[in-house]
C-alpha cells in the first residue's frame, strides 16, 4: 500500500475529531456487514463475512479425539487463523505468520475464557461423548482473504456465524465392557445437533485516533491510530476478553470509558449480526 501523505493524515484525524469519517460514517458506526453461511460444504459449519473490503472465511470441523486428562468432561477447541497472500503481498511465505499468531491468540482468549473453562463462549461440556475417553475436537479455521482493517471483529463475527451453522453428527456409543479403552462409536450421517451459540461473544475493536475512538477502522485509519483496544462482550454484557494493541500508553480511566462505549456498541452489533445470520440461514434452508 502506498503511504499516506501529510495532507491525507490531517484529513483523517480532523474528520474523526468532527465525527465525520472518510466514507461518511459516524465514529461509532459499522460498515455494512454481509454474512453467508454454508460456503464450505465439506466442513461441519462455515461462514463468510464481508465488512466493506475486509473478507474473511471461517470453517468449523469436528473430529473425534481424546479429551485432556486434566479436564475429562470437556471437549477441545483449537483456533487457527491463516492470512492468505491474496490479502496483501506482504503475507507471502512466512510474512503473515506474526499476524496469524496474534489473531489466533486474541480469538482464543476472547472465545475460550479462563484456563478452568469458566466464561467460555463455547460450552465445552456439550462436546463430550464418553467422559474421559472420547470427545469432539473442534478445529476452527479462519482465512483472511482480503484485509481492509478491523480483522479481529470480522473474524469474531465469522466464527459466530460458522458456529451457528455447525451441525455435530449424532454419535451412538455401543455398550462396551468396562475397562475398554476404545469404546465403539457409530457416527450417524443423517442426524445433526445444532450448536448453541447464544453464549458466543462478539468482538468490538475501538481504535483511538487523537482524542476520540472509532469503531471498525479501515487500513488508512488504523495507520493513524495511537492505540486500539479489542473487547469481547457477550449478550449479558459481560466482558469475556480484552486485548490492548498498539504502542502508546493510555490513561486507565480512558480504558474504562472505552469499555462502557464498547458495551453500548456491542448491543447493536449483536442484534445486527444475529439478524444477518438468521437471514443467511434462511437462504440456506431454501436452497
Amino acid at each position: 500500500m502506498v503511504g499516506l501523505s501529510l495532507g491525507e493524515k490531517h484529513f483523517i484525524q480532523g474528520g474523526i475529531a468532527q465525527d465525520l469519517r472518510c466514507d461518511g460514517r459516524k465514529r461509532l458506526t459499522y460498515r455494512p456487514i454481509y454474512v453467508e453461511t454454508g460456503v464450505i460444504p465439506q466442513a461441519n459449519g462455515s461462514a463468510r463475512v464481508r465488512m466493506g473490503a475486509t473478507d474473511v472465511i471461517a470453517s468449523v470441523k469436528a473430529e473425534l479425539g481424546k479429551p485432556n486428562p486434566f479436564q475429562p468432561d470437556k471437549g477441545k477447541v483449537s483456533i487457527f487463523v491463516d492470512c492468505s497472500p491474496t490479502a496483501a503481498p506482504t503475507f507471502e511465505g512466512r510474512g503473515g505468520e506474526e499476524l496469524s499468531t496474534e489473531l489466533s491468540a486474541a480469538l482464543h482468549r476472547c472465545l475460550l475464557g479462563g484456563k478452568s473453562g469458566a466464561g467460555a463462549g463455547i460450552d465445552l461440556s456439550s462436546l463430550v461423548v464418553v467422559e474421559g475417553k472420547i470427545c469432539w475436537d473442534l478445529y476452527i479455521d479462519g482465512l483472511v482473504v482480503s484485509s481492509d482493517g478491523n480483522l479481529l471483529d470480522a473474524l469474531g463475527a465469522a466464527i459466530k456465524a460458522a458456529l451457528s451453522n455447525t451441525g455435530i453428527p449424532r454419535v451412538s456409543v455401543a455398550a462396551s465392557a468396562p475397562g475398554d479403552d476404545e469404546p465403539e462409536v457409530d457416527i450417524s450421517d443423517e442426524e445433526f445437533l445444532q450448536f448453541d451459540t447464544s453464549g458466543v461473544p462478539v468482538i468490538v475493536t475501538l481504535t483511538k485516533v487523537g482524542k476520540h475512538y472509532i469503531v471498525d477502522a479501515t487500513t488508512e485509519e488504523e495507520s493513524q491510530m495511537s492505540s486500539a483496544v479489542s473487547i469481547s462482550i457477550n449478550r449479558q454484557g459481560h466482558i469475556c476478553g480484552l486485548t490492548k494493541r498498539g504502542g502508546a500508553g493510555v490513561d486507565p480511566s480512558i480504558i474504562l470509558d472505552m469499555i462502557s462505549v464498547a458495551k453500548h456498541v456491542s448491543e447493536q452489533l449483536l442484534n445486527q449480526l444475529d439478524s444477518e445470520i438468521a437471514a443467511a440461514e434462511a437462504v440456506n434452508e431454501e436452497s
Binding site: G114, S116, G119, N234, L242, G249, V250, I255
Partner: peptide, 25 residues
Amino acid sequence: QDGSLMITCMPSRYEVTQLTVTGEW
C-alpha cells in the same frame, strides 16, 4: 483460575501500555 487480568503501566506517568483480560468479567 476463572479469569485473569494483566496490566503493564508506567507508574509515574499513570499510563497503561498494555491490558489483557481473559475470562468473563
